[in-house]
């Protein structure tokens, strides 16, 4: 990336968070550059979804800071967050479309929330975005009438309707057939090229990650194992990274005392 002297789009510093007494994220430091596609990768329970939820401002961390476009969202006021959210788009794993609304109405939601544009203009804008995600002509359907891949694309259309500077995408390929998954990857690349967005994708799909990533960060047990380019991650000497890449089951070391107390006393909240 050429804009080394531009402030990063996202800066996470010393992020620690707990669910109850369980530490989920343990000192995360991460920078996402402007215009970059950053993949957050890791197995189930690695903390990647928790990290995403923190980046979205849905949880307050135990400690540490998260700056999005130079605003620290751990200390931001609700007015600042509201303003910042105009520059953020999110495509959730399950789509999170409102089932009582048509696809077109769902896609228009952020415009109604944040703008006072003319009705005709909003309708055309939503249709344009549906065209971009290859759902042209599907605006009158309800989410229940869409396939899994279509729901993800509709969610993406809604996420980009405001042309956000930051786009977050949770598990774009999960549950899709290989062709639909590959099409979605292509779409993410085209969006970045045209709209110059900074994109954070959370996934455990290796093929997809390697195809679209500028850089990848690999999470494991709430810590970052490595952040680097596709080649750097592929050639990493770290065993746990290689385990993930080669789909080897992990060899857990068991802390006998902790395990016993978890079985006998449960987890103390």
């Amino acid at each position: 990336m050429s804009d080394a002297n531009v402030k990063p789009a996202i800066e996470v510093a010393d992020l620690v968070t707990h669910y109850g007494t369980r530490k989920i994220l343990d000192g995360i430091n991460l920078e996402v550059r402007n215009g970059e596609i950053m993949i957050i990768m890791g197995g189930s329970g690695s903390g990647k979804s928790t990290l995403l939820r923190h980046l979205l401002g849905l949880h307050r961390p135990t400690s540490g800071s998260i700056k999005l476009l130079s605003t620290d969202i751990t200390t931001a006021t609700s007015a600042q967050m509201h303003e910042l959210r105009k520059s953020m788009g999110v495509a959730f794993q399950g789509g999170a479309l409102l089932s009582s609304m048509t696809v077109g109405e769902n896609v228009q939601l952020p415009l109604r929330e944040h703008t006072k544009l003319d009705e005709e203009l909003m309708t055309i804008m939503a249709r344009l975005k549906l065209e971009v995600v290859n759902l042209g002509g599907f605006e009158h359907l309800r989410p229940a009438q869409l396939s899994g891949g279509m729901i993800k694309r509709a969610a993406l259309a809604r996420a980009i309707i405001m042309e956000p500077k930051l786009l977050f995408f949770d598990e774009p390929s999960a549950g899709l057939d290989p062709v639909a998954a590959a099409e979605l990857d292509e779409l993410i690349l085209r969006l970045r090229a045209s709209l110059k967005m900074t994109i954070v994708v959370v996934t455990h799909e290796l093929d997809s990650a390697f195809k679209i990533a500028d850089r990848i960060t690999v999470l494991d047990h709430g810590r970052i194992l490595i952040t680097g380019t596709v080649d750097e991650v592929r050639s990493s000497p770290i065993e746990r990274v290689q385990n993930l890449l080669n789909r080897r089951p992990r060899d857990e070391t068991i802390d006998a005392d902790e395990y016993l107390s978890r079985l006998t006393e449960g987890v103390v909240d």
Binding site: T115, L117, E120, L121, I124, M125, L128, I161, E163
Partner: peptide, 11 residues
Amino acid sequence: IDSSGVASLVE
């Protein structure tokens, strides 16, 4: 130009 501008051109 963003999509609101493009939509204006379309209209």
